[in-house]
């Protein structure tokens, strides 16, 4: 018997992630959401039947894009929160975590493995929807251009690269959301509590812009109070950063540099929430 140190292992982490991914894709919820989202995106073709007037090409593409992105955001957020909490609690409640953590496995490997598995599931979901949306938009753009070569003279054409960037940013946002759900799950006693808190945090993160406006106004009247509100406002990440979709199809277009900075912001929060989840989970009684 030896007592050599057991370092943090990316191989073990990826093994746990792989197993988590396998478990998730076998759950009916994932399949249901994928089918529902695909049906919605495919159903968005009904916009083709709608009369958008002489400049119809631009709004039709915009509606298609909004609809597809909306489906991705709505079902993606739902999938992220429910799948992450479910995959975590299935290990705890079914006591498979007991067997796994009785092996030479770090709690950090478990937490990051769960995260990567859940994030990969959401990634597959995003990739499926993004691909479908891109194909739909590509076909419609071709058809619109064939009917009216000048349809996109003043912009409105949605590039595949822009779609990839916007959907990729949403996937990064889902990564932050998954890690936040894991942080809640690390101390939560029930799956339901984690899911409810996950949605609660999602709303708070979308309202961060308000919090920032609030502190800038209060700061003027009382520096101390402003500082306190600012600190509170900075506890949660701002999810408005990820909504660059407004720029797609416009003359200004998407700013790749801005997208990169938002990506860095997301990765920083994923790491911080990850370390906090490990910190909270390290002494959890299994």
């Amino acid at each position: 018997m030896n007592s050599m140190a057991v370092p943090f292992s990316f191989a073990r982490t990826s093994l746990i992630a792989g197993n988590t991914f396998l478990e998730a894709v076998r759950q009916r919820l994932f399949l249901f959401l994928v089918l529902l989202a695909v049906a919605l995106v495919a159903g968005a073709r009904f916009f083709h039947e709608f009369d958008f007037g002489p400049d119809g090409g631009v709004p039709e593409l915009k509606f298609l894009f909004d609809f597809g992105l909306g489906a991705l955001i709505f079902f993606g957020s739902t999938l992220t929160i429910t799948a992450t909490a479910q995959l975590f609690f299935s290990e705890i409640e079914n006591r498979t975590a007991l067997t796994l953590l009785a092996k030479p496995v770090w709690r950090a490997e478990f937490v990051f493995g769960k995260f990567l598995g859940a994030w990969a599931v959401v990634g597959v979901f995003c990739a499926l929807l993004t691909g479908l949306l891109a194909v739909l938009l590509w076909f419609r753009t071709g058809a619109i251009l064939a009917a009216n070569p000048g349809a996109f003279l003043h912009g409105g054409r949605i590039g595949l690269g822009d779609i990839a960037i916007v959907c990729g940013l949403q996937w990064l946002k889902f990564g932050v959301l998954a890690m936040m759900t894991l942080l809640v799950s690390s101390f939560s006693g029930t799956n339901l509590f984690s899911v409810v808190m996950g949605f609660f945090v999602l709303v708070i993160c979308h309202l961060q812009a308000f919090a920032h406006q609030a502190y800038t106004r209060v700061e003027a009247s009382s520096v101390a109070l402003g500082l306190m509100i600012e600190t509170l406002a900075r506890v949660f990440p701002d999810f408005q950063f990820f909504n660059l979709a407004d720029k797609v199809g416009t003359e200004a277009g998407l700013d790749a540099g801005l997208a990169l900075r938002v990506a860095a912001y997301a990765l920083a929060y994923i790491l911080v929430f990850g370390f906090l989840a490990v910190f909270s989970f390290r002494r959890r009684e299994i």
């Binding site: 909004d66 609809f67 992105l69 909306g70 991705l72 955001i73 709505f74 949403q170 709303v203 979308h206 309202l207 812009a209 308000f210 999810f239 408005q240 990820f242 909504n243 979709a245 407004d246």
Partner: peptide, 9 residues
């Protein structure tokens, strides 16, 4: 803003 990317839809 609370709707995030859903508000366009």
């Amino acid at each position: 803003n609370v709707l995030g990317g859903l508000r366009a839809m």
